[in-house]
């Protein structure tokens, strides 16, 4: 193929691209200011529009404090926690296609992930390591916020919401721990849930309700499965929404020190 032909193809491609980007369908998808839109230029106005005309405006303001974008200030820990949550949701949905919360089927399904299902093992690994990583990033995020004094007025309540999120993260991790239904899962959860039984007045009742009996049984599996895939994610998403909303309402990121 000669260079001239190649050039012809390239220019044709460029022309087609321009045609598509100037079409009504394209400009209906990408709102004014989108970098994907025809004729985008890097102007202060467009930089504002990228956020303002985007669903991201629910999460980010148009401008943020300069020190807030320094990696050494936040270490990206809160963002990583959120991103891990999304990653865990995606991998978790994948796993739900192959998992039945009954005994012994649960264990067999987990085994089958490694042997029968394309990418089954790597997705399960990502789900597990991601979950452990999330517990870690949430905890470190809390420590980061403490050391910056970012819980001080007007952010007091958002710290409390954050503690709830830490607790919910632990509960999500703990309920998921039982689901493989192997020796590690069953006995770790037995040891863990035995601690809660000593709570005064309500300990026995709460423990009974949570594990569906006086000890871990196959009934517990179904109960914790529902808690893990539906109930707790539902609750944590609500708290996350409040958490992110309050970050902005309380004046964005704290500091500088």
């Amino acid at each position: 193929m000669s260079g001239k032909d190649k050039g012809g193809v390239m220019s044709k491609l460029a022309e087609t691209g321009k045609h598509i980007r100037s079409s009504q369908a394209w400009s209906s998808i990408f709102r004014p200011g989108s970098p994907f839109r025809d004729g985008y230029s890097d102007t202060p106005r467009n930089r504002s529009y990228v956020i303002m005309n985007n669903v991201l405006y629910h999460l980010h303001p148009v401008k943020v404090k300069r020190h807030g974008v320094r990696l050494s200030y936040t270490l990206c820990l809160g963002g990583m926690s959120f991103f891990l949550f999304i990653l865990l949701t995606i991998t978790g949905i994948f796993l739900m296609f192959y998992y039945r919360p009954t005994s012994p089927q649960a264990f067999l399904d987990i085994q089958a992930l490694a042997t029968d299902i394309t990418f089954g093992q790597v997705v399960r690994n990502m789900h597990r390591w991601g979950a452990h990583a999330m517990v870690l990033t949430v905890f470190l995020h809390m420590a980061r916020v403490f050391y910056h004094g970012a819980y001080k007025p007007p952010r007091e309540f958002n710290w409390v919401v954050g503690i709830m999120l830490l607790l919910l993260t632990l509960l999500l991790s703990f309920t998921g721990y039982l689901l493989p239904w192997d020796q590690l899962a069953v006995w770790a959860v037995t040891v863990g849930s035995n601690m809660g039984r000593y709570a005064p007045v309500i300990g026995e009742q709460v423990s009974f309700a949570l594990i569906g009996g006086t000890q871990i049984t196959p009934d517990t599996l179904l109960r914790w499965y529902v808690l893990h895939v539906l109930f707790l994610p539902f609750i944590i998403v609500i708290f996350m929404a409040v958490h992110f909303w309050r970050v902005r309402k309380d004046g964005g990121i704290s500091g500088p020190l």
Binding site: S103, F107, H127, H132, L170, W187, A188, V189, G192
Partner: peptide, 24 residues
């Protein structure tokens, strides 16, 4: 690195030691 999977749950045989998840 694979996620651990031990043998099928057996309520009559408690492993020694039995440990909770690491954060507990």
């Amino acid at each position: 690195v694979d996620a651990p999977l031990l043998e099928f749950a057996n309520f009559n045989q408690q492993p020694n030691p039995s440990k909770a998840p690491w954060y507990f």
